[in-house]
Amino acid sequence: MTKTKKSEFRPDDYVVYPAHGVGKIMSIEEQEIAGLKLELFVISFEKDKMTLRVPTAKATEAGLRGLASADEVARALNTLKGKAKVKRAMWSRRAQEYEQKINSGDLLSIAEVVRDLHRADDQREQSYSERQLYEAALERLTREIAAVSGTDEAGAAKKVDEVLDSRAAA
């Protein structure tokens, strides 16, 4: 059996893990688990005070990916400008779909959730669950934009707000 190809990820790289968002690879270590030697990425999610160990051989299968390109960020911001697409399905069904999009780790899908759940000040109140999903999607989006553009989260949040506000003004 041939050795798996060396991963494209290195310590200090920022990566996106679908269920948790942007994290930083702290190291690559070997551990023995159930008698098998495994090479693991040690990924730190600073904001969540969480460390995740992902087998390097299963990383891509698990959905681990590098940060989005500047092009993908531009497309995501462009998605925010679009008109909200709200299906007439029951909220529980829509909430499930939004949750899946957020946990897909796909920047464009996350931007769609932000776009669809964003409320301008003059619009009706959001329910608690709507607000929770919106904030989760917004946080994922701003964290990745911040990591890609090398700014802090506040700067990225400001950029996203400006795009959403410009849509409201249009």
Rank of each mutant, 00 (worst) to 15 (best):
R94S: 03
S69K: 02
E99V: 00
K85S: 07
E72D: 14
L141C: 08
I102L: 11
D116S: 05
V86E: 14
T142C: 11
V54K: 09
L108P: 03
E72H: 00
A120V: 11
R93I: 11
E135G: 01
F45S: 05
A84R: 15
Q96H: 13
L141E: 11
S127D: 13
E112R: 12
L80E: 02
R124F: 09
A68I: 02
Y128Q: 15
A89N: 10
Y128W: 15
D121G: 12
D48N: 08
I110M: 07
S127Y: 04
R88G: 11
E72S: 04
L141D: 12
L133N: 03
A59Y: 02
R93F: 09
D48M: 12
A57W: 02
V73D: 04
Q123G: 08
L77V: 03
A84Q: 10
L77T: 02
M50L: 13
R124S: 12
G105N: 07
R119H: 02
M50Y: 10
K58W: 04
E130Q: 13
G82A: 14
E97H: 06
K85F: 00
A137L: 09
E72R: 06
K49G: 06
E139Q: 15
Q96R: 14
K85M: 07
G105A: 03
E139L: 15
S127R: 14
A76F: 02
Y134A: 12
G63P: 06
T60L: 13
L67N: 09
S104Y: 04
L80D: 05
K85D: 09
L107K: 10
K58V: 01
A120W: 07
E61R: 15
K47W: 01
L138I: 03
E99Y: 09
A136W: 14
L108R: 11
L80Q: 05
K49I: 10
R65V: 01
A120R: 10
K87T: 05
V114M: 13
S44F: 01
T142F: 01
D48S: 13
A74E: 14
A76I: 02
L141Q: 14
S109R: 14
R115C: 03
E112L: 06
R124W: 09
K49A: 13
A70P: 01
T79M: 12
D106K: 15
S92T: 04
K49M: 12
E130P: 08
S104E: 08
S104C: 08
W91A: 08
Q96I: 02
V113R: 07
A95L: 08
R131C: 09
Q100N: 11
P55Y: 00
Q126D: 07
L77Y: 01
Y98E: 10
R88D: 08
A57H: 09
A76E: 09
E135T: 03
N103E: 07
T51L: 05
T142Y: 00
E135C: 00
R143T: 07
K83E: 15
T56Y: 00
S104R: 10
L117C: 11
R75S: 05
V54A: 09
T56K: 11
P55V: 00
D48P: 01
K58A: 06
G66N: 13
R94W: 02
L64Q: 08
G82P: 01
A136V: 04
E139T: 15
K83V: 10
N78F: 01
L80A: 06
